[in-house]
Amino acid sequence: MNVRTLPPRPDAFDRNLLLRALAPADRQLLAPLVEDVTLTTGQVLFDPGQDVTHVTFPLDGTVTTLLVPLLDGRTIETATVGREGALGGVVSQGYLPAFNRAVVQLGGPALRMSAKQLQEVKQTSPAIRNVITRYADCLLAQVLQSVACNAAHPIDQRSARWLLTLQDRLGDDTLPVTQEMLADMLGVRRTYLCGVLRGLQAKGLIQIKRRQVTITDRAALEDAACECHARVREHFTEVLGAIYRDDGKLVAVKPDAAPAPSSALAVKAL
């Protein structure tokens, strides 16, 4: 992995919502084990079949995507991970071969640590284990909902869902994405997607400019999207105690305020 590593800055834990939710004592357990990394747009964090050796926690403005590559060269997005979460050895115990590809969609800062060390810390800290277990459940829910969405919903609804998901993680109406990037995520040709985006723009939902898409009417875009975006948000709220602003930005997770985990959430495989 081509990254620049440094010791974590003092405010780094506050720039990832999972880490921010931890008590000071639990942060101190992780602090000696994590390092600052700078991720670049388009960087592949792992590919199918590679051992997942590290867990990455994106910080403000950094967004990664889990993709399933197909034999015909297309890739299909299954989950988007930003400052609300982590990827790499989160659902599994780490150091297992990856099934999918993890790509940096919007480069920026992140924290990284050994997947093995995270598993060891989880055994000593119930709070860290609880946060990671709950997030793993939410990540799996996002993957499963994406599978259903890709199979059942038309491209205009899927496009709206992806734009809303990205805005949730960035908290900004202007999304620094290209039409080519969005087409790759959705597994369609760029020329086809251009027509879809122009249709959303004609309805006053978005504005398209070079290398960016601006959401001009979020409420209407939510109405134009399928139910998948809302269902994933609801699950994040129920399981992880996610808190959203009126403009959609995910601003905090409070796992202690969420209901006690069921036996399904406590499965060791998570």
Rank of each mutant, 00 (worst) to 15 (best):
Y192Q: 13
R134F: 09
R233T: 06
L29G: 04
R218S: 09
T214G: 07
T65K: 04
I76R: 11
R198A: 12
R231H: 11
V37H: 00
E84T: 06
A225S: 15
A219T: 11
Q119W: 02
S263I: 10
V239C: 01
L19H: 14
G85W: 00
L163C: 07
P7I: 05
A257L: 09
V196H: 12
R4L: 15
S125V: 06
D247L: 07
L166Q: 07
C149M: 15
R245C: 07
D51E: 12
Q179W: 01
P7K: 07
Q50L: 10
A252D: 15
G82M: 06
Y135M: 07
S92T: 14
R231P: 03
R231A: 12
S262T: 15
A86K: 05
P10S: 15
G107W: 02
G199V: 04
T165M: 11
R158M: 12
R161G: 05
V188I: 13
L87H: 06
G204V: 04
A115Y: 02
A225P: 02
P109F: 06
D51S: 09
D60K: 02
Q201R: 08
G199K: 14
V196F: 09
V196A: 13
I243H: 10
T191M: 14
P7Y: 03
Q117G: 11
V34W: 00
G241H: 06
V90M: 04
D246P: 03
C149F: 07
A183C: 08
T62V: 04
H229S: 11
A86M: 15
D172Y: 00
